[in-house]
Amino acid sequence: MPTVLCAAMAGPAMGEVVSCDLSGVPVRFEIDRAQFAPALDPNEPTRRRVTIVQMGDAQFPAEPIVMGDVRGFWAASDDGADVMMVMQGDGSGVYTAADQRLTGTCEVLQ
């Protein structure tokens, strides 16, 4: 039994932490890959994927994005406008909001 426990503990971490510097603004969020797992039962309700984004001094909930080697998030701002951040596989990142566009670099920490 201890062998099984040790093997399970040595497995990969559940989440990826994405850390960015976008036009001098630090942005950090975590993607929990388990949130993207398919439902075990077709009658299971749709799962909500959520991450907490730390952007400078602000913190807000967002929906994480994973598409191949692309990472990011989407959220609605307080005024209902779309907010989106996308990190490409080469580490370049872009954040867009109604009146703001930030660019820079990101890395996935594990």
Rank of each mutant, 00 (worst) to 15 (best):
residue 69 D to C: 02
residue 78 D to K: 06
residue 18 V to A: 05
residue 70 V to R: 08
residue 72 G to P: 02
residue 98 A to S: 11
residue 46 T to Y: 03
residue 44 E to V: 06
residue 103 T to G: 13
residue 77 S to C: 12
residue 25 V to W: 00
residue 51 T to D: 01
residue 101 R to V: 15
residue 28 R to W: 02
residue 70 V to P: 01
residue 50 V to D: 00
residue 39 A to E: 14
residue 105 T to N: 10
residue 82 D to G: 14
residue 105 T to D: 10
residue 4 V to T: 10
residue 70 V to G: 03
residue 110 Q to D: 15
residue 54 Q to L: 11
residue 11 G to I: 06
residue 90 D to T: 04
residue 70 V to Q: 10
residue 28 R to A: 13
residue 37 A to V: 11
residue 64 P to W: 05
residue 98 A to C: 01
residue 71 R to I: 15
residue 79 D to V: 07
residue 76 A to T: 12
residue 15 G to R: 06
residue 58 A to G: 04
residue 3 T to L: 13
residue 15 G to T: 13
residue 59 Q to D: 00
residue 72 G to L: 00
residue 44 E to M: 13
residue 27 V to W: 05
residue 5 L to D: 11
residue 14 M to V: 13
residue 38 P to Q: 09
residue 15 G to K: 06
residue 39 A to G: 11
residue 27 V to E: 07
residue 41 D to K: 04
residue 36 F to P: 01
residue 25 V to I: 12
residue 89 G to Q: 03
residue 92 S to L: 14
residue 48 R to Q: 14
residue 28 R to Q: 14
residue 88 Q to W: 04
residue 28 R to K: 09
residue 33 R to M: 15
residue 18 V to E: 11
residue 32 D to T: 06
residue 1 M to Q: 09
residue 54 Q to N: 09
residue 26 P to Y: 04
residue 63 E to Q: 03
residue 27 V to D: 06
residue 70 V to S: 11
residue 106 C to S: 05
residue 69 D to F: 03
residue 107 E to Y: 04
residue 54 Q to S: 13
residue 35 Q to A: 10
residue 86 V to L: 15
residue 37 A to I: 10
residue 22 L to G: 09
residue 104 G to C: 05
residue 39 A to V: 14
residue 102 L to G: 08
residue 51 T to P: 01
residue 104 G to M: 06
residue 47 R to Q: 11
residue 89 G to I: 12
residue 72 G to T: 00
residue 82 D to S: 13
residue 110 Q to F: 08
residue 4 V to R: 07
residue 32 D to I: 08
residue 108 V to E: 03
residue 71 R to Y: 15
residue 38 P to M: 07
residue 57 D to C: 08
residue 57 D to T: 12
residue 75 A to V: 01
residue 94 V to K: 10
residue 78 D to W: 01
residue 107 E to C: 07
residue 82 D to N: 10
residue 8 A to Y: 08
residue 95 Y to R: 11
residue 44 E to Q: 12
residue 29 F to K: 00
residue 46 T to C: 05
residue 1 M to I: 09
residue 103 T to M: 09
residue 76 A to C: 08
residue 4 V to K: 08
residue 3 T to N: 08
residue 43 N to S: 13
residue 74 W to T: 14
residue 29 F to E: 02
residue 103 T to F: 02
residue 57 D to M: 08
residue 17 V to A: 14
residue 50 V to H: 02
residue 45 P to C: 01
residue 13 A to C: 07
residue 50 V to R: 03
residue 110 Q to Y: 06
residue 108 V to H: 03
residue 27 V to S: 09
residue 6 C to R: 09
residue 68 G to V: 05
residue 28 R to N: 12
residue 54 Q to W: 06
residue 110 Q to G: 14
residue 9 M to I: 11
residue 43 N to A: 15
residue 82 D to W: 03
residue 104 G to T: 07
residue 103 T to H: 03
residue 86 V to W: 02
